[in-house]
């Protein structure tokens, strides 16, 4: 607030100077690119992952790097680097700190939105440039096969049901509050430390409902252990054609996890256009379909920079609302 007043009263402040500097840098970088057309990219790309090796974000990054290399889509290398810690803050601070550097990339996870919202970071999702989203992971609401709950409607008949999520603020937590509001009942959200723990609690009968990525749920559904009730995507999933969406069942619940890629703020428009083109080729190519989409049971999708940016606004607003309801932030 104070900052805002000073910037209007004092005219030129530090903040606006910084902004101008960034703008000049961006223009300079852009001109540099225009001057030497084919020059970008002429250095190795650095893809920073906010979690350790073997997690979802890491697998996405490594698969993408492998395809870019195998199909020779980019003339230079892309190195995947893990910078875990601080609930994503370490990696995202690093990326945002590389202002206007079109050789640094990162993936969008839940912590991309939630950690800055906690107010302990100087950057927010607005300090990044969205490039594109190349896959989408819907969530499947499922119950154990022996559960008396046969449909979303049945949840109302059993007050006090519980569900598990990874951490307090997550997509499943968001979906559980959305379901509670739509049904006018209360689903209790029990936070666990990992997807595996949630699934173990589900199979062991310690929670009643689970919202999971197809990657976690589908095998259990195939084995007849879990029964899917609804999917959270706008349309039905290709791999579960018989399971209706929430929307079809009359509930206004649409929320999916977008597998998107970002760069620091202030990168030249040429770099954005370049990566939009590359990522479109990746998303529509066969290698991506066989090595990522099919293997992890995700849905193919391509959103360009503008569309993905809009989705980032929606997602951040949703998390902010949830965190306010949980009284994590004011």
């Amino acid at each position: 607030m104070e900052d805002h007043i000073s910037s209007t009263v004092g005219g030129i402040t530090r903040r606006s100077v910084a902004r101008t500097a960034v703008a000049i840098l961006a223009v300079a970088a852009g001109l540099g690119l225009a001057g030497a057309q084919a020059a970008y990219p002429d250095k190795t790309f650095q893809y920073v992952v906010q979690s350790g090796v073997g997690g979802g974000s890491d697998i996405l990054a490594r698969t993408l790097a492998k395809i870019l290399h195998d199909e020779k889509l980019v003339p230079v290398n892309m190195l995947v680097e893990n910078r875990p810690g601080g609930s994503g803050a370490i990696a995202y601070n690093f990326i945002a700190g590389q202002k206007a550097n079109p050789y640094v990339l990162g993936g969008v996870g839940v912590s991309f939105f939630t950690t800055p919202l906690l107010g302990k970071m100087t950057v927010s999702y607005k300090d990044f440039t969205p490039l594109a989203a190349i896959a989408r992971s819907p969530y499947i609401l499922a119950v154990r096969a022996d559960s008396p709950i046969k449909s979303v409607e049945d949840i109302k008949k059993h007050p006090g049901l519980t569900t598990g999520t990874v951490g307090a603020v997550s997509d499943p937590a968001l979906l559980a509050t959305m379901t509670s509001q739509q049904l006018g009942t209360e689903i209790r959200v029990v936070p666990y430390d990992g997807e595996g723990e949630v699934l173990a609690a589900m199979l062991g009968g310690h929670i009643d409902l689970v919202y999971g990525n197809p990657n976690e749920i589908l095998e259990q559904v195939k084995a007849g252990v879990l029964r899917p009730l609804a999917v959270s995507s706008p349309e039905r999933m290709l791999s579960l054609p018989n399971v209706p969406t929430f929307k079809e069942q009359g509930y206004d619940i649409v929320h999916t996890q977008l597998r998107g890629i970002v760069m620091p703020k202030g990168v030249p428009p040429e770099a954005i256009a370049y990566w939009e083109g590359i990522l479109k080729k990746v998303a529509e190519g066969d290698a991506w379909k066989t090595q990522y989409i099919q293997r992890f049971n995700e849905e193919p999708i391509f959103l360009d920079s503008v569309e993905f940016g809009k989705q980032m606004d929606v997602t951040s607003a949703r998390y902010e609302k949830l965190m306010k309801e949980l009284k994590l932030i004011k």
């Binding site: 073997g54 697998i59 595996g196 699934l199 173990a200 095998e219 084995a223 293997r295």
Partner: peptide, 27 residues
């Protein structure tokens, strides 16, 4: 047996199974 990673290390091992194209699960 269940396709659930019970620890940090097995979570990474499971990532390995997925990356080589095997679907860990009850089946």
């Amino acid at each position: 047996a269940l396709g659930i990673p019970g620890s940090g290390t097995t979570a990474i091992l499971m990532g390995g199974l997925l990356m080589i194209g095997l679907q860990p699960g009850p089946m």
